[in-house]
Design a protein around this nucleic acid. Structure first.
Length: 326
RNA sequence: CCGCCCUUAGCUCAGACUGGUAGAGCAGUCGACUGUAGAUCGACUUGUCCCCCGUUCAAAUCGGGGAGGGCGGACCA
């Protein structure tokens, strides 16, 4: 696989292609980041961007994970002390998941976001950004809720982080698109350079296949799920035997294979009773998806394989979590 | 600082005028049917009616006070 393809596989959007192609020429030692609001337990959404980070490390890049404590504070997620504590747990889970400790730098937002230069730059961005724009860029704000001042400062800081962490590339989910576009536009306006961005897909809601926003309420698979919980959740997932269900729906089971399983495993073995034809082995997402559509692979069997693959991915983080709690 | 509106199930809300301790839709749970899920049937669950005080035999409902949220006016320093 060539470097550009490794950098951009399983992404929904590359902003912009030329800049990323240039990066692909010489990725060694280049710095890429993703920022997370500390949350106690990682879920599949976090792991999707983590998969991308692993790809980028494989390409030779240095990864910076921003544990965005100040952002979490601005989003009313608790006291700094509480936030720092969950951030530590988050860090441990990322390492357990497979990020290379040697080439991953974990940075707290509060390490630099409270300094004078940074603060003044935030104010400069406030000066040139309309309320409307900032509010639309704020992905985290609850729909129906009215924005606090903290909510509109939040995306401005995200934009600035990309300058202050001295990055060559930023990544984030498609939900971060508007922030990144704001960054592309506003950083040059205050004398900094806009950086290229990769956007990872947002996996559809497991139970409904609805790819739209509401995933916060649906069932999520997290690092603390037991093997049994995982099986139950996967089994209850929406899974018609097609990769393109009617309407706007997606097939979340296939998506999980595509974005979580195949990027991390060479092959996937579907265990199947002899009655249904015996075991199957897949080396690529494409062949598995094709078989699901043709009926060669029954959704129930696919789910079994998905659950055990996910279990394997999550197990190290789950162990770390239970150790930290003991 | 002034004025108006809102607060009832997880969510959106009805009920308030004409007091009798609460309803709908959606969500959720459980079965049936599918070798998964969904769809479709069938059943079921859900409450500090924002808080306090008062009136009353009886308050979600009436009166007073308070809290939280939303909107507007005023101010043009």
């Amino acid at each position: 696989m060539d470097t550009y393809e490794l950098l951009t596989r399983n992404t929904d959007e590359v902003v912009v292609e030329d800049e990323v192609r240039e990066l692909a020429q010489d990725p060694d030692g280049k710095r890429v980041y993703v920022g997370y609001e500390p949350s106690g337990v990682l879920h599949l959404g976090h792991l999707l961007t983590a998969n991308k980070l692993i790809d980028l490390q494989d390409a030779g890049m240095e990864v910076v994970v921003l544990l965005a404590d100040v952002h979490a504070y601005l989003n009313d997620k608790g006291t700094f002390e509480e936030i720092r504590e969950t951030a530590e747990r988050m860090r441990a889970q990322f390492l357990a998941y497979g990020l290379d400790e040697e080439r991953t730098e974990f940075v707290y937002g509060s390490d630099y976001q409270l300094e004078e230069d940074y603060t003044l730059d935030v104010h400069e961005l406030e000066l040139s950004t309309t309320l409307n724009r900032a509010q639309r860029a704020m992905a985290e704000i609850q729909s129906g809720e009215t924005a606090k001042v903290s909510h509109v400062v939040y995306p401005l800081m995200q934009a600035l982080d990309i300058e202050y962490l001295d990055l060559d590339l930023a990544i984030g989910g498609m939900d971060q698109r508007k922030v990144h576009m704001l960054m592309r536009e506003e950083l040059p306006a205050i004398g900094y350079e806009a950086r290229p961005v990769l956007h990872t897909p947002i996996v559809a809601d497991l139970t409904t296949g609805d790819g739209k926003m509401s995933s916060s309420e649906g069932i999520t698979i997290s690092m603390e799920d037991s093997t049994e919980e995982l099986e139950e959740k996967v089994n209850s997932a929406f899974c018609p035997p097609t990769r393109d269900p009617e309407g706007d729906l997606e097939n979340p089971v296939l998506e999980l294979f595509e974005y979580h399983v195949f990027p991390r495993f060479e092959e996937v073995v579907v265990e199947r009773p002899d009655e249904y034809g015996g075991d199957l082995t897949y080396e690529s997402y494409e062949t598995l998806a094709t078989d699901l559509e043709s009926g060669e692979l029954h959704p129930a069997d696919a789910k079994g394989a998905l659950a055990s693959s996910l279990d394997e991915l999550i197990a190290p983080g789950r162990d770390v979590l239970s150790e930290m709690r003991a």
